[in-house]
């Protein structure tokens, strides 16, 4: 009896596997849980736990459906082992079901889902910002970029102080030349008086220049800070979208998180590249 039914049973099951009642919970599950699945050779212990949850979910969904429609397990088995079910297209449809029994298959589905989400995140970032942040396109990542910016500021500060120092030195030399004839051991007091009296005009410009420079510097610093904040926000957003349940919360120290972040970014980049390659190949 079961064999006669196999055709409509199979059709019905395939229909179910394409319906929102199946697709939504399964996709939700995968998108929520895929973030810990990377392409490292070694499996994490948490994969097993997630696989178990997946088995429970699929079992519940299928059982509910079969009960609803009135298919028993025997019919299900007949239908799914019939020649129809062995076609390539149907095998793909059945993949999420078979993944309950095949950890390796489950794992590859999850890794693939994770990559998809990451690529999606990259695309969204690109759309929003016109281009990807430096860290996701070339070798450098956010931290080194920040360091570079800080180095720039430092350079400017150093340069400024050097300029000031040279100015003062040349000024002193000028004074020394002027005072050279009077006495070699000129005390500080006459020197200061001289400085104030002889070059009042020069002094005012000298004072103004560093001030305007300082203004510029300050502007630059705030701009850079804003830039940095934006980058941070971006990173957070990206993390949120692709890491729904980040395994590590609340960074214990800034240096630690930076190293971790670096590693993660590198990995992500690697993944994205790999996926791109695969997609292009196909």
């Amino acid at each position: 009896m079961a064999e006669d039914d196999s055709e409509w049973v199979l059709e019905s099951i395939v229909g179910f596997l394409g319906s929102p009642e199946w697709v939504i919970p399964v996709t939700d599950f995968m998108e929520n849980k895929c973030t810990v699945f990377d392409d490292e050779e070694e499996n994490k212990l948490s994969y097993t736990e997630i696989h178990q949850q997946y088995k429970n979910l699929v079992e519940k969904l299928l059982e509910n459906y079969m009960q609803e429609v009135g298919i028993n397990e025997q019919q299900f088995l007949y239908a799914c082992t019939s020649p129809f079910a062995k076609s390539k297209t149907l095998q793909i449809v059945f993949q999420p079901v078979l993944a309950t029994d095949d950890f390796q298959m489950f794992r590859s589905l999850m890794v693939q889902k994770n990559m998809e989400l990451q690529l999606q995140a990259l695309r969204v970032m690109k759309e929003r910002n016109g281009e990807l942040p430096e860290c996701l396109t070339h070798g450098a990542d956010v931290m080194t970029e920040l360091q570079q910016q800080e180095m720039k500021i430092l350079h400017q500060v150093l340069q400024k102080s050097k300029e000031e120092y040279e100015e003062e030195m040349s000024f002193r030399m000028l004074l020394d030349e002027e005072n050279g004839s009077t006495s070699s051991s000129s005390s500080d007091k006459p020197f200061r008086e001289k400085q104030a009296s002889t070059s009042s005009q020069q002094d005012s410009t000298a004072k103004e220049l560093p001030e305007s420079e300082q203004d510029q510097l300050q502007q630059r610093a705030t701009y850079l800070r804003q830039q940095r904040d934006r980058l941070h926000a971006l990173k957070k957003e990206q993390q949120k979208s692709s890491y729904n349940s980040p395994p590590e919360e609340a960074p214990s120290s800034p240096t630690e998180i930076s190293a971790e972040e670096k590693k993660r970014l590198q990995k992500r980049k690697h993944l994205a590249e790999k996926l791109k390659e695969e997609v292009i190949k196909k």
Partner: peptide
């Protein structure tokens, strides 16, 4: 037991 044992038999190998 149950449905998952049926799924196990589906594998085409």
């Amino acid at each position: 037991k149950g449905l998952l044992s049926v799924v196990e038999k589906l594998k085409g190998t």
